[in-house]
């Protein structure tokens, strides 16, 4: 059966990957091409690149940069930020993107989704929805990197977008983003029930257990950004943890996921000296295809 996807989100600001905290503080992480290549090597299932500058600067995506970033990406690459026309989408697909993410432009101009779906198929159209919890406990969708309220509820908007031709929803909780306290489970389950298209939840992962909680809500994928930058062996640990808990995740052919033990922070526990001593002499050659 279909596996739950472990998705890496890379937020790009001023040409570098940044750590985002609730969409208002950004800390530098590093070069985009390196981040893409490493996530790919660690066995991520899907990479989402979001250019935070394009829409505020009123420009199209930087196609030449996408070409450079995608060079060593052997997993699906979804690219968003500044996509305003079907020509932009076509150029992105020719530059190394496999799917297109829309946010502000989809909310301002829903026809763009239908038009994109007509040309590139709905499976290509990923709509990113950023949501804040209101003081009354309800939720509201924000656009333009979380700066503009739209007055729409995420469930209703998600269903409308599905009818227009969206093929996947990437749902981010702005409040939980970068807080490492777990996903907004209520938000995720509300939207998961509202739509029949795949849903990927993002925002708040700080421990592999957080990924597990959200996997149980029937999502198609779990996404994280910072979690993968700041945790050792992050993707492998996450998959190993989920695999041990019985979630169907993709296991790469040359990593051993079975022997991981975890401490209370969800990190890999130290292996005994005896085992390490044996491991020292085990060579694992990389496969040449």
């Amino acid at each position: 059966m279909l596996k739950t996807r472990i998705v890496g989100v890379l937020i790009i600001k001023n040409g570098i990957v940044v750590q985002s905290l609730q969409f208002n503080r950004y800390l530098p992480v590093g070069r985009v091409a390196i981040a893409v290549e490493y996530l790919n090597r660690w066995g991520i299932d899907d990479i989402v690149l979001l250019d935070m500058d394009a829409t505020p600067q009123g420009r199209s995506p930087n196609f030449e940069k996408i070409r450079e970033y995608s060079r060593f990406c052997q997993v699906p690459l979804t690219v968003g930020g500044g996509v305003r026309s079907v020509k932009d989408m076509e150029n992105l697909l020719h530059a190394g993107a496999d799917r297109i993410a829309l946010n502000a432009s989809a909310i301002a101009n829903p026809q763009l989704i239908s038009e994109g779906a007509r040309l590139f198929g709905k499976q290509c159209m990923v709509i990113s929805i950023d949501v804040r919890r209101k003081t009354d406990g309800n939720y509201e969708v924000f656009s333009h990197s979380g700066t503009r309220p739209t007055g729409q509820s995420p469930e209703i908007l998600a269903r409308q977008l599905e009818n227009l031709g969206a093929g996947e929803i990437l749902l981010t909780s702005i409040d939980n983003d970068g807080m490492k306290q777990g996903f907004d489970l209520e938000l995720v389950s509300r939207v998961a029930e509202a739509v029949d298209i795949p849903l990927v939840a993002c925002g708040g992962a700080g421990h592999p257990g957080h990924l597990l909680e959200v996997c149980k809500l029937g999502v198609s994928g779990v996404a994280a950004g910072n979690f993968y930058h700041y945790t050792e062996h992050s993707v492998i640990v996450a998959k190993s943890y989920l695999h041990a808990a019985g979630i169907n995740v993709r296991l790469d052919s040359f990593v051993t996921y079975d022997d991981c033990h975890f401490d209370s922070d969800g990190r890999v526990a130290r292996i005994s000296d005896e085992t390490l001593e044996k491991l020292r002499f085990k060579a694992v050659p990389e496969e040449v295809i």
């Binding site: 059966m1 279909l2 596996k3 739950t4 996807r5 299932d45 899907d46 709905k122 499976q123 093929g167 996947e168 029949d196 298209i197 795949p198 849903l199 198609s220 994928g221 993709r250």
Partner: peptide
């Protein structure tokens, strides 16, 4: 039972 489109890794 299943979400359409069929997106992701499958055996």
């Amino acid at each position: 039972e299943v979400r359409i489109p069929h997106v992701g890794w499958n055996n």
